[in-house]
């Protein structure tokens, strides 16, 4: 039986790991630029997915007009970055209202799809980041105020726990997407064959599809598990980012995934060290050191 002191010593590595994880999850401060880029991208994705469906003439009921007004005002504020974090909460709430109320309650089935939920949740999560401190009207007003007062402008930095939550969301998404496919039906290739016939071949099964579908089925499941468990870690991320982006590009052009692929690609920014993203941006703009930025994004 180990002495008490030894038992405590045994726990120390676990405590250190837990403390390190807590520091990563909730205690990291970093550049606000990647958060701001996600904020702007999300506003554009909201417009891309819904703007044409929410034009004022499309649904002239009081509820429809109320939804459209909220949608356009909230997303515009999110895009220009005026009261950015409030606008993100507003936009995310509009997205969830569309998903739960208009989608499930009122029966607009396309609004109940996974890509709509992901957009809404991403908007809510970006509200937990310092997305207001860069590339925003908020930033412009803060700099103007600082100049007027003769003080240095506020730093483009903040706590990044919202980005960590986006990482968790993406990993959960990938893991359960793979889990859903981890069965004989999918891995045999049958489900991919059915989907291929549904969209492309009609009722004529193409020669050679069987082995291709089986190979692809194993590849997709393996890739999704790898993305779920590997993207959060820098050592494995370098090998997974391009396959992940290629995977989303392929399903974007072959299947009706709407904004899903673009949303996922945008949210990949959350995986990267925010200060490294900042240095790359500075390098691209010719105001940073190439030496410090080089090799940071991996």
């Amino acid at each position: 039986m180990p002495a008490p002191a030894d038992a405590i010593a045994d726990w120390r590595p676990a405590q250190a790991v837990a403390a390190r994880f807590a520091g990563w999850a909730a205690g990291t401060e970093g550049s606000s630029r990647s958060s701001a880029l996600i904020r702007i991208g999300l506003a554009m994705l909201f417009w891309s997915r819904w703007a044409c469906e929410l034009l004022l003439y499309m649904d002239q009921s009081p509820a429809g007009l109320f939804l459209a007004a909220n949608f356009f005002v909230a997303t515009t504020l999110l895009f220009i970055g005026y009261h950015s974090r409030l606008a993100a909460v507003w936009t995310g709430s509009v997205g969830l209202a569309m998903y739960y109320y208009f989608g499930f309650e009122l029966g607009r089935e396309p609004w109940t799809h996974h890509h709509t939920y992901l957009l809404a949740v991403a908007a809510l999560l970006i509200a937990l980041t310092p997305c207001d401190r860069s590339y925003s009207l908020d930033r412009y007003l803060a700099v103007t105020r600082a100049e007027r007062l003769g003080i240095s402008p506020p730093a483009e930095r903040g706590n990044l726990w919202g980005l960590r939550l986006i990482v968790v969301q993406l990993s959960v998404l990938y893991f359960f997407a793979a889990f859903d496919k981890s069965n004989h039906t999918f891995l045999s290739g049958a489900r991919l064959e059915q989907i291929f016939l549904w969209f492309y071949a009609g009722s004529d099964y193409p020669a050679g599809l069987a082995w291709l579908a089986t190979t692809l089925a194993f590849g997709v499941v393996a890739l999704e598990y790898c993305l779920a468990l590997g993207l959060p870690f820098r050592a494995t991320r370098r090998y997974l980012v391009l396959p992940g982006l290629a995977f989303h590009a392929i399903i974007y052009v072959t299947l009706p995934v709407y904004t899903f692929s673009a949303t996922m690609a945008l949210l990949y920014l959350a995986y990267f060290d925010a200060d490294a993203v900042d240095r790359v941006i500075a390098r691209l703009q010719g105001i940073g050191s190439a030496a410090t930025a080089k090799g940071e994004i991996s």
Partner: peptide, 19 residues
Amino acid sequence: PWLRSWTMFSAIGLGVIDA
């Protein structure tokens, strides 16, 4: 509906006939 699963395209292709 309050719980979001990640089962994309789980119903697409069901009912398709290969003949």
